[in-house]
Amino acid sequence: MYSEKVMDHFSNPRNVGEIENADGVGEVGNPTCGDMMNIYIKVEDNILTDVKFKTFGCGAAIATSSMITEMAVGKTLEEALDITRNDVAEELGGLPQVKMHCSNLAADGLRAAIEDYRNKQNIKK
């Protein structure tokens, strides 16, 4: 059902865990719908230097979480905000149609983490 790359990210997920003193945290989804994700980011000079995740969810949810952390590291915040669910799915070599909703979570999670970071910056200013 899943591509090799999805299974690779699912079985060896990259960047699992929390970042202590993260600059931004995104919490999206809820256990009711079956998928839930936290994304933690570190930002230096407008660039994502570290991205980690924790996910409750199906194979697609875990694989897209892992994939997006790899895609995001090294990008500017603006570039990272432009990552769509389709980008993540494409990078994974495609996802089954019924699983496309799960890949929303990763893109939304990253955006939420960046927003959280920006809100915190504004408060500091």
Partner: peptide
């Protein structure tokens, strides 16, 4: 509790 069935199924399948 705290985890989802499909991901369990996939790991067990492996």
């Amino acid at each position: 509790s705290f985890i989802e069935g499909e991901s369990m199924l996939l790991f067990l399948d492996m």
